[in-house]
Amino acid sequence: MPKILAFVEQRGGVLKRTAGEVLGAARRLADGGGSGEVVAVLIGHDIAATLGAALGPLGADRVRALQHPSLAPYSGEAYARLLAAEAALAKPDLVLFPASAMGKDLAPRVAAVLGVGLASDCTALEAGAGGSGFAATRPVYAGKAQLKVGFAASPAMASLRPNVFTAPSAQPGRSAVVEAVTSDPGALRDAVQSLVLAASAKVDLTEADIVVTGGRGMKGPEHWGLIEGLAAALGAATGASRAVVDAGWRPHAEQVGQTGKTVSPSLYIACGVSGAIQHLAGMSSSRVIVAINKDPDAPIFKVADYGIVGDAFEVLPRLTEEFKKLKG
């Protein structure tokens, strides 16, 4: 009967999509071990009433909503301190996080406070193996291998790669007990002074369900309208190869690959990207890969599920038009 603590991410009072993924994984492991319990932990300001009720249908049995005005912006130090205290109180067998920007910062802090091991950015999690009863699988060497680890101490801790664990559909009939707790984190050394969001409210790369990436084959930043047009037709995020970022055509935040972001969307469309090993490292776990390249021997075709051999400048406008027709 495993007890699982799941950190549920919200920003600005809005639940992240990963909430369903993390709670879904927690529910599956809790039920697999025979009527275990899933405790969701929400941290922020004024969130219990607005967000708490949504978590039962996603798989939580109990919701701990830790609230305080100074918790409205993320603070790694405060969030870690509170979560470690929750873990000490609940004594879970497993603590789960999303491997989002926030989760990647937070999970190792909590693991360090508790002095336990953490498996970061996992793509699979199972019960019944390893010292504490869980085994986690995670990509290493930039996705060129998969490492399976067990945990020497309890609780086991893992962060889950976004888009990999499917969120079960919400069960409206399920409800959770929501406990709103006033949690003053006390003095903080790392208060966030401001959050600066990029002007465009585009979908973020690592959270996107579809990613359209442009490489050096796009010839210059003035042609990015073609990439953006296709992305807009699909509601996709845009990415870039390192060659493009190094040339200054696109910001580094858009780089996909070993020294950029790792993405696992359900559809990845690479345009004018050769498919260097360092690029593949960042996107080869995508569910479906499409390549558009004028060179039939480009290595990207080796990992692509579907390819078009042709000039991106001719193919992209037509493709955008066809997708618009489909969605039309």
Binding site: A111, G117, A129, G130, K148, V149, G150
Partner: peptide, 12 residues
């Protein structure tokens, strides 16, 4: 003392 134990490494 290690906190994680390697159970296996495999190709994807």
């Amino acid at each position: 003392a290690p906190r994680l134990t390697v159970l296996g490494l495999a190709l994807p």
